[in-house]
Amino acid sequence: MTAQNHVPSVLSRTGAVSALTLAALAGTLLAPGAAPAAQAAGPAHATKALNVAASKKGSPYKYGAAGPSRFDCSGLTLYAYKKAGKNLPRTAQQQYNRTRHISASTLQKGDLVFFHSGGRVYHVGVYAGSNRIWHAPKAGSVVKLERIWTKKVLYGRVR
């Protein structure tokens, strides 16, 4: 092999490696089946709201309460997002009306999960991933992480 033939080959390989390295550093290179970084993590305010909701684990449920130590469902989401720098209205229905409605395929950690029946939203929780939410379920219970128990849910992203 002559030097002339060898140099383009090396440059070609180096160029390909450099492009792959740059793509990986820029976050555009994904393993098959991996979620894009934005889909996995969500916006910073959503991540913070999720962490705030999780930090309230064990806080007692109280109808109409919005923290800092007792919560109802929409009070927990209101409190969590307020700590993350976002304002939400008070009730689950109002929160649903205020969020950007999204599909299950675009759901990210920190998005809100709304439970509905008969055309009205009656419950809300903060999506934690793996089909689970942080929520304040009902009287006599506490803030907890729980699996989503029904398919009658809608999703919203706080803007």
Rank of each mutant, 00 (worst) to 15 (best):
G75I: 05
P68Q: 12
A44D: 14
S74P: 02
R98I: 02
A46I: 03
T99P: 03
Y79V: 09
Y96V: 05
G64I: 10
K57I: 11
A49S: 07
C73H: 01
R98T: 13
I102P: 01
A53W: 02
K86D: 07
A84R: 02
K62I: 08
T91Q: 06
T106L: 03
S103G: 15
L76V: 10
N87F: 05
S59H: 06
C73G: 13
T47Y: 04
A104R: 15
G64C: 12
A104I: 02
T91Y: 08
R98D: 14
K62S: 14
H45M: 08
A84V: 07
P60W: 00
G58T: 10
V52E: 01
K48Y: 00
C73E: 05
K57W: 15
K82A: 15
R100Q: 15
P89W: 08
P89E: 10
A92Y: 00
K82D: 13
H45A: 14
Y81Q: 01
G85Q: 13
K56A: 09
I102S: 00
Q95I: 06
T106G: 08
P60E: 10
Y63V: 11
K83I: 09
T47F: 04
Y81W: 13
L78R: 12
K48A: 12
A46C: 13
I102G: 03
T77F: 03
Y61K: 00
C73S: 10
H101S: 11
R100I: 11
Y96M: 01
Q95P: 04
R100A: 11
L88H: 04
Y63F: 15
Y61M: 09
L76E: 07
N51Q: 15
T77L: 08
R90H: 15
S69Y: 11
Q94H: 06
K86E: 12
S69P: 03
K56D: 01
A65Y: 11
S55L: 09
A65H: 13
C73I: 03
L88G: 00
A84S: 13
T77M: 07
R98C: 02
K62N: 10
R70L: 02
S103Y: 04
A80T: 09
A66L: 08
A44Q: 14
A53M: 07
L88C: 09
S69V: 10
K82Y: 10
K56N: 01
Y63E: 12
K56Q: 15
A44T: 12
A49V: 04
Y79I: 08
L88Q: 07
H101M: 03
Y96H: 11
T91I: 06
P89Q: 10
K83W: 01
K48R: 15
I102Q: 04
R90C: 06
A49E: 02
A84K: 00
A104C: 02
V52K: 01
A46M: 09
G64V: 11
K62C: 08
Q95Y: 04
S69G: 11
A66I: 08
A53Y: 05
T106A: 15
L76S: 07
G67S: 10
Q94C: 03
K57H: 13
